[in-house]
Design a protein around this nucleic acid. Structure first.
Length: 269
DNA sequence: ATGTGCCGTGATTACAGTGT
DNA sequence: ACACTGTAATCACGGCACAT
């Protein structure tokens, strides 16, 4: 529109996070903390507009976007920078083992008769809400973990000691054939949201605090291409995220499940 | 009443495709 | 080569819910 372009356009989020990083990072550091309000001073200093939703700066780099190249390139080999909560409005840059949860590509897709109510499917909710709904209506937690699970609450928002405020997409409680009781925090990821240690660790910590008597099994569900749903059970071993189990499901009309499919399933595990 | 984290979505920008 | 249009990707905001 108007001739408002000079080369100066790394976006505001990037400019600010870069500056925060530069202000604190000394080569060799494995972690350091910073505070939310540092963004204000930096914006003034750099003469850029302060974004109105300051928290979104950090949120976006934690869960939605990649950190700028100038930051990622300083990480040690096989490590990557993440941002984790460090108390109210405080955050911590930290180098952790590189760990992106990516669905395996050598896993059979298990077809499940789709029990999503038609009316839900047609009113396609957002990516994440839709995924959560499908998981719920098709009892995929039960199927995946082999326990009887009940949805306790969704979008549980709470603060966890030492972490700050967090949100768990949905929480189930369940029981198995031996009477052992479980709490199952579920995170749902749509197409592009990142899937890191941070959130899994948060979920687990939260459950330890709020449900100390129950066994915690953190689950994550993610849309893959072709409408398939990848389910993971995750755990954290010294800041490193590990996949305990993984399955891929596809919800289909039961007429599309052939006897050869069933034959394959019969021979699994 | 104010601060914080989160998520959907409109606005903006970047890109690809088409016609002249 | 250029303007124009449609589409995809990215950015940033508004507004909600819960905490303090």
């Amino acid at each position: 529109m108007s001739g408002e372009k000079k080369g100066r356009k790394p976006n505001r989020y990037t400019a600010i996070i870069q500056r925060i990083f530069d202000d604190h990072y000394v080569p060799g550091d494995m972690e350091f903390e910073f505070a939310r309000d540092e963004a204000e001073a930096i914006a003034a200093e750099l003469e850029i507009e302060l974004p109105k939703n300051i928290g979104d700066i950090f949120y976006s780099f934690r869960y939605r976007n990649e950190l700028p190249e100038a930051i990622t390139s300083t990480a040690e080999p096989d490590l990557e920078w993440i941002i984790e909560g460090a108390g109210r409005a405080r955050y911590r840059f930290k180098q952790v083992k590189l760990s992106r949860i990516v669905p395996r590509d050598d896993l059979v897709t298990v077809k499940i008769p789709d029990a999503t109510p038609e009316i839900i499917g047609t009113n396609a909710l957002g990516d994440e809400q839709g995924l959560l709904a499908k998981v719920r209506y098709n009892r995929l937690i039960d199927v995946f973990l082999g326990i009887a699970a009940y949805s306790l609450q969704n979008h549980l928002r709470t603060t966890v000691k030492g972490l700050g405020q967090i949100e768990i997409d949905e929480i189930y409680v369940g029981v198995n054939s031996n009477g052992q009781q479980y709490v199952v925090p579920v995170q749902a990821k749509g197409g592009k949201d990142k899937h890191g240690v941070t959130q899994t660790e948060q979920d687990i910590r939260c459950c330890e605090q709020k449900f100390p008597d129950l066994i915690c099994r953190a689950v994550s569900a993610q849309f893959m291409e072709d409408d398939r749903i990848a389910m993971f059970e995750l755990t954290v071993e010294d800041s490193e995220i590990k996949v305990v189990r993984e399955k891929h499901y596809k919800l289909v009309p039961s007429s599309e499940i052939s006897s050869t499919d069933l034959d394959v399933y019969a021979r699994m595990e």
